[in-house]
Amino acid sequence: MVTPTVDRRERERGPDLVAGTSLAALGLYVAAQAVTMPRPAGWHSAPGLLPFLLGSWLTAMSAVLLVGSVKRGGGAQLRRAVRQIRQDVTVRADRVWRMAFMLAGVAVYVYLLLPRLYFEIATFVYLATTMRVLWRREPLKIALVAGGVAVALTLLFSRFLRTLLPGAGSWL
């Protein structure tokens, strides 16, 4: 009988192949870097001691993950997973797109809007745009919600909690 847990593991075999490879590479890199670190009073107190042990341990565990995945058909599963992702992107296009938009929205907010605009303006622009695209309600309702939240957060953090706000300062 195929239990849901085993089914999940089957689905994870493909990603395990990618994860095992990349994490093993990361572990090797960490261990190699750790070896080059200075040892002023021997290896006992060397700054690279724990990173070396962790890098080696990560490499070993990732290798087990990788070998386990390959032995159980991880390559074929990965190809199936890629095909599945393509199908998912089509079938669940809306969800994937919303998630990607949300992520891109946060990136634009943090790296483009906040450094250039007052906090409340940047927050209003971010919230209004995100809600307009994801929520799809009439612009006035969105502007009211986004504006209200931007002002409320500004007042809460700058006046009540007396903290500095990120970005180019505050207007209020």
Binding site: G105, T123, T130, M131, W135, L153, T163, L164, P166
Partner: peptide, 20 residues
């Protein structure tokens, strides 16, 4: 769609507020 963007702003504020 309304709640999550607001929480994202709180995430930014929370991360920033520790060390500015």
């Amino acid at each position: 769609e309304v709640l999550m963007p607001i929480i994202a702003v709180v995430c930014v504020l929370g991360a920033f507020g520790l060390n500015l």
